[in-house]
Design a protein around this nucleic acid. Structure first.
Lengths: 134, 134
DNA sequence: TCCGCGCTACGAAGCTCTTCGTTGACATTA
DNA sequence: TAATGTCAACGAAGAGCTTCGTAGCGCGGA
């Protein structure tokens, strides 16, 4: 009703959001330094990305000081939920259970993860789903 | 080892793949007609997309007859698995269980879906994950 | 035979994404 | 104060995505 709901972040944008979620509010330099090992780019690339992400509403900018400070507008969980819902719509015909099925078929789903997931299900099972903010 | 593994399909490509999965091998005209209601575009747009998707290896083309016939190179399940794995890597730090958690937090996860998911888990639980082709 | 229809192929336009160089403002320091 | 360094802003280049118009080919009917 009040949230203009940010657009789906692109790959490069997601990489920057990951940094902001991990570090908390950060300057361009801090984002760039964290990003460089995995994604070697120029300082101005990070700057430009953050400027564009500000326009898109993906991040907020504190301009109080000359060196601006950026922070993610949505939490990691909110964004993850949005991305999952988006993928469920685009590739799973709206069926979340089909997505879970494929998640389980991934090499990545280790035995420990399976156990963790089962705990999740048992915790939720029987209750109604009611958590739906995005 | 032998599969060059097709690139992640874009939104428009995914829409076309959905048609091919549903209809089976199809001509450009058939794809276009199926696509038009949800995504009104010109015939040549569908044609061009399918040509590009052929170059990318997302679809295969039978050129025996003058009217070519296209079919998806990967099954819906293979593609879904690839997309899930990709999202897990990009947004969930490689943790499939975190993705499942967010899938459960979606409005879309109805009570029936939860039950279905629980059945899935119980069927899998205790066994090792071994299905890993992509 | 010739016309029209459906088909593929091609090229290009408009858009987004990602990247970076350059510029000018401001601060710090010598 | 002058030199040096850091910063935001901007423009533009190059790539990819999506769209469509146009051209050219072959086939079947008049």
């Amino acid at each position: 009703m009040s949230k203009p709901s940010a657009p789906r972040p692109t790959d490069a944008e997601l990489a920057i959001l990951r940094v902001l979620w991990e570090r908390g509010p950060s300057t361009v330099r801090q984002v760039h330094d964290s990003l460089t090992p995995e994604r070697p780019t120029a300082y101005t690339t990070a700057l430009k990305m953050l400027q564009i992400m500000t326009e898109k509403g993906l991040v907020r900018r504190d301009e109080t000081d000359r060196t601006h400070i950026y922070h993610a507008r949505l939490t990691q969980e909110q964004t993850q939920r949005q991305l999952v819902r988006d993928l469920v719509d685009r590739a799973f015909g709206g069926s979340a259970s089909k997505l879970v099925m494929q998640a389980l078929a991934t090499r990545r789903a280790s035995a420990e993860e399976l156990a963790e997931i089962r705990k999740l299900i048992e915790g939720r099972d029987g209750r109604e789903v009611r958590d739906d903010r995005d």
